[in-house]
Amino acid sequence: MKLILHVWRQKNPAQAGRMVRYEANDVNPDMSMVELLDVVNEELILKSEEPIAFEHDCREGICGSCGFMINGIAHGPEAATTVCQLSMRHFKDGDELYIEPWRAKAFPIIKDLVVDRSAFDRIIEAGGYISVPTGSAPDGNVILVPKDASDRAMDAAACIGCGACVAACPNASAALFTGAKIAHLGLLPQGQPERHQRALSMVRQFNAEQFGSCTNIGECEAVCPKEIKLEVIARMNRDFIHASLS
């Protein structure tokens, strides 16, 4: 089948970008979205044009490298699917696809579809961990964790840090990302000693990175490839409010 792609091309942060139209003929329905870009890029290289820069690595939906907007939806139309696992059978012959990078002040564009998501690392750096020096841990079974708590912590910990939540949010908020880590660690007994300080530090960093605020509308939850729930944001709010006012 044939698809028309409109792709955001931008040489570097300083130069202005624009949408460029490409035609992809011979699209195999079993291809993934990034494999389609591979094919387009092969043709561009042979025509001595610069290939479209886009991030990707594991191509199995877990590393969180890939991600862009397809027709206005982060990671495209399929729920719980990153672009590297989005197969072309979800599109029809002749469809037009508008492909744009994540857009947020906190995610400056580097080139084409590649953006700088290091703000996420700095949010983790601010407190997204449990301070436990190597070798100082007691036996694993000394810390009993109720199955329910462990399961819910795992739900939150499944975040791959792709940035789709920020991209989809009308406010470019990183609340889902920040909340996921606060919820993951805060649900476990190991995370209790630093729970409140963690919420204070991580929220402060999330604000310092110039992400917007959460308005609880749920766009992030809808596009999250790992189906992280808004509940994690409520947990972040609770821990932060408790830490601030107690």
């Binding site: 409109h6 955001w8 949408m19 907007m69 027709n71 206005g72 939806i73 982060a74 508008y98 744009e100 857009r103 947020a104 002040k105 906190a106 989809a168 009308p170 406010n171 470019a172 908020s173 110039q210 992400f211 917007g212 605020s213 308005t215 609880n216 509308i217 749920g218 766009e219 939850e221 809808a222 596009v223």
Partner: peptide, 29 residues
């Protein structure tokens, strides 16, 4: 204050943007 902050958080908008999961009410507050 939040609206200003949120507006500034995305200086360049999308060419195409669709709502994927939010209610009309929430988007029109």
């Amino acid at each position: 204050q939040l609206a200003v902050r949120n507006y500034e958080a995305r200086p360049t908008g999308y060419v195409r943007k669709k709502a994927a999961g939010s209610s009309y009410a929430s988007r029109t507050m």
